[in-house]
Design a protein around this nucleic acid. Sequence first.
RNA 1: GCGCCCGUAGCUCAGUUGGAUAGAGCACCUGCCUUCUAAGCAGGUUGUCGCGCGUUCGAUUCGCGCCGGGCGCACCA
Length: 590
Amino acid sequence: MLPHKKIESALQSAVREVLPDADVSTVLVRPGDPKFGDYQSNALMSLAKTRKLNPRQLATDVLAKLDLASVCEKVEIAGAGFLNFRLKNSVLVESLQAAARGEHLFFEKASSPKTIVIDFSSPNVAKPMHVGHIRSTGIGDALQRNLRLLGHSVISDNHIGDWGTQFGKLLLGWKNILDRPALECDAIAELERLYKIINAECDANPARLEEAKAELVKLQAGDAENISIWQEMTALSQKQFDEIYSRLGVKFDHALGESFYNPWLGEVVNDLLAKKIARESEGAVGVFSDSSLPPKEDPFLVNRDGEWIDDPALVRKSDGGFNYTTTDLATIDYRLKTWSPDEIVYVVDDRQSGHFKKLFAIFARWKSDDAKKVKLIHVGFGKILGDDGKPFKTRSGDTVKLGDLLNEAVERAYKTVSEKSSELPEAQRKEIARVVGLGAVKYSDLLPNRQSDYIFNWDKMLALQGNTAPYLLYAYARIKSIFRKIEVNLSLATRHSSLVLAAPEELTLANHLLNFGITVEAVAEEFRPNFLCNYLFELAGKFTGFYENCPVLKADDVATRDSRLALCDLTARVLKQGLETLGIETVEQM
RNA sequence: GCGCCCGUAGCUCAGUUGGAUAGAGCACCUGCCUUCUAAGCAGGUUGUCGCGCGUUCGAUUCGCGCCGGGCGCACCA
């Protein structure tokens, strides 16, 4: 058990002795200001507050029942009622040695693993994946990796947009103006061309729009020719998706697109109608407010000029077609029946938060028993902006294609690595550029708090100074460089050497290694990969402090050298594991 | 109009149950390569945490009201 868990557990039982009815689940310890100790807890102050007790007195009482002699130095009460803990050096050393022996890597599997469906990426068929997809794809992948690391059973599902009104226009275009050679050359570009032309025609000419709608109706009715064309378009798009995902190293357990749920949509609407959850309105079918909430909190009401009016979620259009709410309801139902998850997590743009509020509310009304068994979570994120603070576009005003973006990142990284490390063979520089370029894009997207919009900046993400992927990869490469300079069997020997932690930089680094688990748990708790980014940046910084001040290969004696080698090795392993959890590869040299 | 999100150093952003003196990077200045990768490090300067009120022993964090910005608001997803 990791030291902070031992402290927590002892503290919780001490609290139970003093306050038998207290909920100790919030009695936690956190890394604190090193000046006060290695860990601190402020939980007693909030406990005292709700019970109107004197916080310092409560701390004193709890302290009297607290037995941590084997783990900590003397526990101190400070300020209004903080508890400060400082680990015994022997405990710190033993924890690192256990890690060096391969017994753990400073994190523990969840005590009660959950089954979690995570829904992310969701690109659209017949459209190029664009820069915006990096957000859902990168955050979603980092979260699935993080949750898996903690031992949860994760089912990732790519809810591809392979069904919907755009196919009416695409079919019309395919039948009338398809350029076969162009399709074979660049399928997505050709499909995009068809869509743009027909879309413009539909805007200008209502008759054209009717033609497109007719194609859509035929498709939805199962017309053989239209189905066959649709299948070809889907297959061509899947090739594009596979190529991007393979570059990004992103894997899905399933890719059940919208079309998969098509057979159940009619039933969903009929059931909603039968249960009086939905009703007809202006020829469409929608779910309206059930007046169970005050208007302000009711997702099915909106205020127009001082008056609360209906803002329903439509589940069937007046032309008989279905909306994405219908598909999403069928999807939740399918997922519950198929996987019985504890949670379903949607990594989708924050602008759709209104949709998810409605969706979750409808599901709770539709299948209230099932809804109690699952937590539906919308993990939203902000937009990517350009220098001007407006949505990130190319110079000509088009959306930036994801493939182009990745190419440019790798090219820029190649230029830098060729300048800085011209002595490396070209093939190796290319590989470094690939890892650094892709890592930089992913990392810069994961670093900001996901809720906020962020400004895209090539120079910043590829900079080697500051909180960037290249900086972290560089720290890793410097460690690996040390190991290249020693014999192989010596590096094996260090795994069993005993550690001596004496220099302040060694202690700081060692303590920080111990916080890896707290960090990945926080990421999983709040679905915020940026916590891990910041942890790794601090780790790299603390390693650099150690690296500058504590010679490893030229240490004064063999024991110190081996101890420091072990510390280097552990740091490298945590960096590698952390980056891998963010979906970022490492290089041995750069 | 109503709802949601945001407002922290000159710029870009962190800030984990409310907690101890609010932090990074960039930029600017000064140093450090006959010692493990200088793509690095050390030091210096930088704040009415949008404004006000409230809750609290304690508020950047919670509540209310303003101001400023973004997004959303029935047959697209």
